[in-house]
């Protein structure tokens, strides 16, 4: 992707992020304080990390609807292994990550080897995960977190929220991985044209599988941060991410058709969605309105990016 497209695509979401932030200041001047800004960033980190994972799936022209199930599963397992006396933070972190890796592997194999469309494959595994969480807890989950672990979600380092720092660090690592490594460039190539990638000598299937593993693993990391923040198990906690993760990525300029977009836009997209939700909170509108707004935002942003691309195309060819 050219620098120009890169700036253009990623620029528009950041302009929207800043405009919306200033606008929210009009609704509630308290929003403009540093304290409130850090608050938004702290909370945005959960969606931020989950949608970084979703970016991998969309970049390879796929989609991952199972992130919702992975987040719920992570929350249940982490609190179960950490809660009470003798709970282990190490197990509480390792078990969800291991389960997520397996889920991502299965998604990837279903898509890359068996040839199931990503939508159906991940919708199916999302249902299995949700059912699994219900069965595991019998519908009444119990457990908790350890104080040291909770600091990841609630604490701060040098005045900056720990969750935000972790989010930015992961985002930076993903940027390097996707933009500056051979692996990342091959992943983009597969997303833009899988058949051409294969004809160019790239081993397509392992990279496809790896994208779904990355998506699941990052969803689990987001789930761990969220668990650290709320400190307790909650069935269905991941459901909100089903749409918001895709909305964040799409709003951030990553194309559903694959191979276009990236991490910088997704970070902005996650911020934008979180801002929207906090504004709707300030205005005391119901969750129903939040869903309404999210649905509209998804459709509108796809339309916006398409018209930007078209305008540029007609200008630069001929």
């Amino acid at each position: 992707m050219s620098v120009w497209t890169f700036l253009r695509r990623i620029g528009s979401v950041w302009i929207a992020v800043i405009a919306l932030y200033l606008l929210s200041g009009l609704a509630s001047p308290a929003m403009l304080t540093l304290h409130q800004l850090l608050n938004v960033l702290q909370v945005a980190a959960f969606l931020g990390v989950v949608s970084l994972g979703e970016t991998f799936a969309l970049l390879v022209a796929g989609i991952d609807l199972s992130v919702a199930g992975v987040v719920t599963m992570t929350n249940i397992l982490a609190t179960a292994f950490m809660g009470g006396h003798g709970g282990s933070v190490a197990l509480g972190v390792a078990v969800p990550l291991a389960v997520a890796a397996i889920v991502g592997m299965i998604n990837g194999l279903l898509v890359a080897i068996v040839g199931i469309t990503p939508l159906i494959a991940t919708l199916g595994s999302n249902a299995v995960l949700y059912g699994g969480a219900l069965l595991y807890t019998g519908g009444a989950p119990h457990g908790g977190t350890q104080p040291g672990f909770a600091a990841l979600g609630q604490g701060s380092v040098g005045g900056l929220p720990a969750s935000m720092l972790i989010w930015f660090a992961i985002a930076l690592a993903c940027t390097v991985l996707l933009r500056h490594t051979v692996y990342g460039r091959r992943l983009y190539a597969i997303g833009a044209n899988a058949r051409a990638a294969r004809f160019t000598g790239i081993a397509v299937r392992p990279i496809l599988v790896s994208a779904y593993v990355a998506s699941s693993l990052l969803a689990a990391m987001g789930g761990l941060l969220l668990t650290a923040y709320i400190g307790q198990p909650a069935l269905g906690i991941g459901d909100q991410f089903l749409f918001t993760s895709i909305a964040a990525v799409v709003v951030g300029g990553t194309a559903l058709t694959g191979g276009v977009g990236g991490v910088g836009g997704t970070v902005g997209g996650a911020l934008l969605i979180t801002e929207l939700n906090s504004i709707t909170d300030i205005l005391r509108v119901s969750t129903g309105v939040q869903y309404l707004v999210q649905g509209s935002i998804i459709a509108l942003s796809v339309l916006l990016y398409r018209s930007i691309d078209r305008a540029r195309r007609t200008r630069e060819t001929m």
Partner: peptide, 9 residues
């Protein structure tokens, strides 16, 4: 279909 990555530089 088999050689180019159209959106890439």
């Amino acid at each position: 279909g088999e050689a180019l990555f159209p959106p890439h530089s």
